[in-house]
Design a protein around this nucleic acid. Structure first.
Length: 336
DNA sequence: TAGGCCATCTGGTCCT
DNA sequence: AGGACCAGATGGCCTA
């Protein structure tokens, strides 16, 4: 709906196109500006010549007038420039160009956010974290890595997850927790056989790609059967299985750790799906190579994980003998 | 249908 | 003057 005043002949630039409904995307930009500009050039009472006759030179002459719109001598304050056709055209072009620049600027910002998504835990092309969650997770991730450097040893997984998930939404918390569980499990498998490979990225040494045989087969192209790709296991069960005691975190169904945000829930309400190999390993060998994926909805909360009966899952997986090497690795990352 | 997230447009402000 | 940056407004899309 057009709400601009039609009876005002003289308008400042700031009055142009102030608020009007947006009827579509940029293709209609021109149309909108045209609609907005029409009354300014064709409904004036003070316009003595047709707009077509006006030129840039005439516009400049008008600017030199010494009387305001009421015929009174102009005394002070900024001059109000009449909106001639030339000026309107110029404004239109400037606005269109500014919109294009702004779009490009926002695209650049989004590209940077995408790059950030790739280097924080739980990167997935198919299920992107929201902008705000990406920023929060990145902040937590930086802080958690800084803590590792400061303390000089690998944290236990629970603490690490708690630190990562501070302030995150419940779905994102579940997603991150799911990612870290898988990779911690892989970490343990790597430890049991041989020492860690220090030539690898420090991120990979902390969260190496998950190579569970159960998940090693990439999903077929096309339809993905979640019932086959979901590999549930329960965080608390794993804890109890390893420590042969009841996890303090799991004593109540809705345990909330003192270190965790109020919404923190470690009962494993998430599901997992193997990402396509192409999404990983290309550029980000230090990232999360397997991600929690929803079985329903974007950040699914509908399936409960259960630990396979033969699995063991220790929270505390740090190796003191590796702390110095790990510090070197992390330093290398931060200084590259 | 409400709410979250997002892209885009827009005008204001600051800086060069 | 013009570009960068910012925040508010708006409407579309998606999901619970």
């Amino acid at each position: 709906m057009l709400t601009l005043p039609f009876d005002e002949t003289v308008m400042t630039e700031s009055q142009i196109c102030r608020k009007f409904p947006r009827d579509s995307e940029e293709q209609k930009q021109g149309k909108r500006l045209e609609i907005c500009a029409k009354p300014l050039v064709s409904h004036g009472n003070n316009i003595k010549r047709s707009p077509e006759e006006e030129t840039e030179q005439e516009e400049e002459e008008e600017d030199k007038e010494e009387e305001d719109e009421n015929g009174m001598p102009r005394r002070r304050g900024p001059r109000k420039k009449k909106m001639t056709k030339v000026r309107i055209e110029r404004i239109k072009v400037r606005r269109v160009e500014a919109n294009a620049r702004e779009r490009g600027r926002m695209h650049g910002l989004n590209d940077a956010l995408d790059n950030l998504r790739k280097v924080v835990p739980c990167y997935s092309k198919t299920q992107k974290l929201s902008k705000i969650e990406t920023l929060r997770l990145a902040k937590n991730y930086i802080w958690a890595l800084s803590e590792i450097l400061r303390i000089g040893k690998r944290p236990d997984l629970l603490t690490f997850v708690q630190n990562l998930c501070k302030g995150l939404s419940q779905p994102t918390t579940n997603l991150v927790a799911g990612c870290l569980q898988l990779n911690a499990r892989s970490f343990l498998m790597g430890q049991s056989g041989e020492t860690m490979h220090h030539t690898r990225s420090p991120y990979a040494s902390i969260y190496p790609p998950y190579h569970s045989p159960e998940l090693s087969t990439p999903p077929a192209h096309g339809n993905v059967d979640n019932s086959k790709t979901v590999k549930p296991y329960n965080y608390c069960s794993a804890y109890e299985s390893f420590y042969e005691s009841t996890s303090p975190e799991c004593s109540s169904p809705q345990f909330e750790s003192p270190l965790s945000p109020p919404s923190m829930n470690y009962n494993g309400i998430f599901s997992l799906k193997q990402e396509e190999a192409l999404d990983y390993g290309k550029n980000y060998n230090y990232g999360m190579h397997y991600c929690a994926m929803p079985s329903r909805g974007p950040l699914g909360q509908s399936s409960m994980f259960r630990l396979p009966t033969d699995s063991h899952f220790p929270y505390d997986f740090h190796l003191r003998s590796q702390s110095l090497a790990m510090q070197d690795e992390l330093n290398a990352v931060f200084h590259n």
